[in-house]
């Protein structure tokens, strides 16, 4: 176990290094000279020179990268060029909003995906199985921004049950907070539910054919006990760890969902930064999401080993 952990942690170092290189390189893709763009329309040569010196743009690229990395390692993600606020503060302000949304989405995805997957596996080749498979195809094929718009039309415009947009923090009013986030959380959870359904179905089908399930049935246990106590427990372990890896999908989905529902989270932060050409914020957000994803990947691996005694060496 310790050897595995050591190996995994060692592998993270080059991965994180290349993530930082990719993110730093993004700035190099900028058409034109960043200092000239930042100097505004007047393009005063003195101002341009000052910006170049301030942001070390007059230094060779590897030196610029080294300074940038040094800042990142000490927790300094730079400063928003538009509102002059440290990117770290912006990230810390917006992250909890997206985390609430992501948490709710995962709960919805697990509830729908795992239930549909189990039903589909135990009723293989019946109408229920086909319905669950159609649901999975629907979930994977529906663009979440369209689903979001359609839900707003139905539940906000037509029925008036839920607010069309906006966000209320949990600490302020939990009911209003749930009302403002349930639609976006469902939109986010929908596609993940579809993926989880497929994983659950396939894991359950494998487990249901195994010897110990056959033994449990032969002992005369109730089918419900066999499925819930014997089969599901083993089938769900890989499913839940795979679910953790869907964080990337969640964060990608949050970009559009937060835009549609006007939720001031991480996704909206990056889109606004893109349109305001606030590149430091774009870099900061990508870096934080990548680090989050890598960390969760590692935790999922550890959890998988912890719950699977055969993998512990």
């Amino acid at each position: 176990m310790l050897t595995f952990l050591g190996k995994r942690l060692l592998q993270l170092i080059p991965t994180l290094f290349f993530v930082s290189v990719i993110i730093f390189s993004l700035q190099q893709l900028l058409p034109g000279d960043p200092a000239t763009i930042m100097a505004g329309e007047e393009r005063d040569p003195e101002v341009i020179a000052q910006i170049r010196a301030q942001y070390r743009l007059d230094q060779p690229i590897p030196v610029q990268y080294a300074y940038w990395l040094k800042g990142v390692l000490s927790g300094d993600l730079g400063e928003s060029m538009r509102i002059h606020v440290p990117v770290r503060d912006l990230v810390l302000e917006k992250l909890p909003v997206t985390m609430q949304l992501a948490g709710m989405a995962i709960v919805i995805a697990l509830l729908i995906g795992v239930t549909a997957g189990v039903i589909s596996a135990v009723t293989k080749n019946t109408v229920w199985d086909y319905a669950a498979n159609v649901f999975a195809l629907w979930g994977i094929s529906t663009p979440n921004f369209w689903l979001g718009i359609m839900l707003i039309f139905l539940f906000a415009v037509k029925l008036g049950w839920l607010p069309a947009s906006g966000y209320v923090p949990l600490t302020e009013d939990w009911r209003a907070s749930l009302a403002s986030t349930i639609m976006p959380a469902f939109v986010l959870g929908n596609s993940i539910a579809a993926v989880l359904m497929r994983h659950t179905r396939s894991a359950m089908l494998n487990v249901l054919e195994s010897d110990y399930v056959r033994t449990a049935r032969a002992k005369g246990l109730l089918e419900r006990t066999v499925i819930l106590k014997h089969a599901m427990r083993n089938a769900l372990t890989p499913v839940i760890t795979l679910g953790a890896l869907e964080l990337g999908t969640l964060l990608s989905g949050a970009v559009l969902t937060e835009q549609i529902f006007t939720i001031p989270g991480f996704g909206k932060l990056i889109v606004d930064a893109v349109f305001n050409r606030d590149y430091a914020v774009v870099q900061g957000v990508v870096l934080v999401t990548a680090t989050l994803y890598i960390t969760l990947n590692l935790l999922a691996d550890i959890a998988y080993i912890l719950v699977n005694p055969r993998l512990r060496g």
Binding site: P14, R277, V282, V286, T289
Partner: peptide
Amino acid sequence: SRITDAMLACPFLILAIALAAFLG
């Protein structure tokens, strides 16, 4: 493999948005 891991660590759409934004 390490470069691939690094790219896969950046959520697909976020990286695509960032790239599209930087490219124009």
